[in-house]
Design a protein around this nucleic acid. Sequence first.
DNA 1: GGTTAAACAGACAGTTCTGTCTATTCGTGT
DNA 2: ACACGAATAGACAGAACTGTCTGTTTAACC
Lengths: 195, 195
Amino acid sequence: MRDRLLEAADRLFYAEGTRAVGIDRVLAEAEAAKASLYSHFGCKDELVAAYVQHRIALARSSIEAFVAPIPPGERALRIFDWVVAWVESPDFMGCPLQRVVGEVVDAGHPARVLAADQRDWLRARFTEWVKAAGLANAQQLATALLVLFDGAVIASVQDGSRRARDARWAAGELLKAAAGGRAETRAPKLRKPKQ
Amino acid sequence: MRDRLLEAADRLFYAEGTRAVGIDRVLAEAEAAKASLYSHFGCKDELVAAYVQHRIALARSSIEAFVAPIPPGERALRIFDWVVAWVESPDFMGCPLQRVVGEVVDAGHPARVLAADQRDWLRARFTEWVKAAGLANAQQLATALLVLFDGAVIASVQDGSRRARDARWAAGELLKAAAGGRAETRAPKLRKPKQ
DNA sequence: GGTTAAACAGACAGTTCTGTCTATTCGTGT
DNA sequence: ACACGAATAGACAGAACTGTCTGTTTAACC
């Protein structure tokens, strides 16, 4: 039951925005009664938070599954292939977290607290991937790629998936510059003209 | 009168979102009567469109004024200083256009049509600046910087202005790579081993 | 001074929204 | 058979929203 409500909310909230969709629409979509919703979630804000939580869980497992078979050193670049695939999926409507943050002004809102967490998680992943590539200046490079990631998603909303490809290209250039320009931190090896 | 209404709408819409702010709030803020608003704007959607139009006009003139004294060849990078200053301004709440696009699902909404125009304008500026720097692969570089620009703004909403600085750094690296890696387009004329 | 356009205050209709509450039904385990 | 937890339908309150309309006031112009 909770799942049915959450999935209905997920579809509607993502397609139209949390503010544009009322409780009644969610109930109709889930074919559920109002009391069920309020007994499970307490109030709409908590339903929104549950929606965000759900999206976060999906994103994390999707990303983890995507990078798993990729050699750690290539993940920082290849994650942009994941972005391209995402923005090209048929009902892509932007990043649900970016949209919630835009709609909900209060940074203390439960949904925004979750979004902030996810943000930390994503930055940690980029840091990890960049370090795995054995590049110097890892922190700087990781946050630069994070910004590129954000830009790829938001720009694709208006401009289509070509922006995600542009971001991938830029990420490649940055990584190339970091690898070629200066020495790598670990292992002597010689610099591999990656991608 | 129209201006007073528009400025009130601008303040409230930008601070809280166009959907969160009702007509009555705008009227109270402008100390105006309802009839005034509806005779000037017709309906709320048109007020939202006027708000977007206003923000676009501000952005264009602000950007133009900012780059005017900067040598054309440096503008593609220095525009990121403008972004840093913007996201550090005290009541920065993200990009008003990105937020409206997130709120308004219908791409045919008057406000979204205006936003799409502004998008073209901005991309054209980046192309112009990159070309002025005399770099090869201008289109690719321009759209990459555009994505970086978008990412700088959206990422700064959650992470603060350091992301705008990260974007500036990344832009510098990309421009350096484009300038150093291969020949510049003008003058020398030797064959460029592209990509 | 009289005309006219614009702004004013605010009532009003009609809808939508969140959240509460009552009363009923269903299914399961004992 | 029975009890109990969970879901159901839906009325209801109270607020907020958009948009319309009426009647009044203000101010500029001839």
